[in-house]
Amino acid sequence: MKLQSYDIPDDLLYTKEHEWAREVGPSVRVGITDYAAKTLNDVVYVAPSKVNDEVIQFKSMGTVESIKAVSELYSPLSGTVTRVNTELDLHPELVNKSPYSEGWLVEVKALDFASDRKRLLDAKQYAAHLETLLKK
């Protein structure tokens, strides 16, 4: 679905802090939403958690930076980082160009995604959350 100019794919789960999560085989892939990417305007540096780092749901898992600003990343789930999108080292702009596919950030081996996912928003809920934010 779409809210104003912001894409919100129906098949993803979301945090209120604008990260998305998608199950990819045994792992969960994580990135930032189109809204987050557009708000940052131009991502120039991505420093997420590293492979083998443990992440905890809704706790910091690194940063994404634009020229002007630093934005904290919050993990949508608990687990261990298994892959980092190293393409972003040279091409951080992929986060802007393609936040939901080539611009993914990390993959995490979940501890208990069945429980974690209950605390995430679906596309409809995230769109409603965003709508409230944009009205402020």
């Binding site: 305007n41 131009d42 120039v44 634009s66 020229i67």
Partner: peptide, 11 residues
């Protein structure tokens, strides 16, 4: 104005 397109592009 903070940016029109992107800061990098304008820079």
């Amino acid at each position: 104005p903070l940016w029109y397109t992107t800061t990098t592009d304008e820079h």
